[in-house]
């Protein structure tokens, strides 16, 4: 376990990594980042979480997350926790791989035609993927008014906006500052919001449980029990 001095040292190095990214100095950002145990820990945690995927894939997911961090900060974005940001982006990259396979199953015809189609794909296929994403977001927005009291709706609306904007990390503190409430209140309201959203979705024949397994810590982070 790291002692307090170590932790402070890591925080300083991560802050230095962000400072380097802000001025577009990628090698310096990498040097600072790799002097902390963050890349090591991310590798260990992600490899343990997905034991069947090759290590090279974990490496690439982390590399892509580091690149995303660089682009985000260089572009003026604010990253409150580098570790949380990197973990979430790498997690999402791996998830995207699974989703890409599913999309390919539907859009590409099976067996011997696949090669031919790969050469001459339907012009609308990428649009189709985007259209599905937009439809899912519009369904979520339609369900928002049924989520209960105003603050729950406001918090969930903020979250859905962030998903639509392809955000990678959305700290509770940011939502709290935007809506004038505490981070703890955000956590509690969001937990209730997700539970109700999932219940409403199930009632409409849109099961959400099959992908709930995407993150055990996410469920733990929800905190409160489901209300009836």
């Amino acid at each position: 376990m790291a002692n307090r001095d170590d932790e402070q040292g890591y925080d300083d190095l991560l802050a230095a990594a962000q400072a380097a990214a802000r001025i577009g100095d990628a090698p310096e950002m990498l040097r600072n980042l790799f002097t902390t145990p963050v890349a090591d820990g991310l590798t260990r945690r992600l490899a343990a979480r997905w034991p069947r995927i090759p290590r090279s894939v974990v490496d690439t997911a982390i590399a892509a997350a580091i690149d995303t961090l660089f682009v985000e900060v260089q572009g003026g974005g604010r990253v409150r926790s580098v570790v949380s940001f990197l973990y979430k982006v790498a997690h999402r990259r791996i998830d995207d791989f699974h989703r890409a396979n599913e999309v390919a199953e539907v859009i590409s015809p099976p067996d011997d035609l696949a090669g031919i189609i790969a050469e001459t794909p339907p012009a609308s296929s990428d649009d189709e993927v985007e259209a599905m994403r937009r439809t899912a977001i519009s369904i979520a927005r339609r369900l928002l008014p049924q989520l209960g009291q105003g603050k729950v709706i406001e918090v969930m609306s903020y979250v859905i906006d962030a998903v639509e904007a392809e955000r990678y990390d959305l700290p509770n503190e940011e939502i709290g500052e935007a809506l004038g409430i505490t981070a703890d209140a955000v956590r509690s309201l969001m937990s209730r919001g997700f539970q109700r959203l999932e219940r409403l979705a199930r009632a409409e024949g849109l099961p959400t449980s099959d992908l709930a397994a995407l993150g055990g810590e996410l469920d733990r982070a929800d905190g409160t029990e489901e209300e009836d």
């Binding site: 979430k88 997690h91 999402r92 998830d95 989703r99 599905m132 994403r133 439809t135 899912a136 977001i137 369904i139 979520a140 979250v159 859905i160 962030a162 998903v163 955000r167 990678y168 990390d169 959305l170 509770n172 939502i175 969001m190 997700f194 959203l197 999932e198 979705a201 849109l206 099961p207 959400t208 449980s209 099959d210 992908l211 709930a212 995407l214 993150g215 810590e217 996410l218 469920d219 982070a221 929800d222």
Partner: peptide, 14 residues
């Protein structure tokens, strides 16, 4: 896609 949307929302806000 909808399930994925919810999972993604949970992930970014976790």
């Amino acid at each position: 896609e909808f399930a994925s949307l919810v999972a993604r929302a949970k992930l970014i806000a976790a």
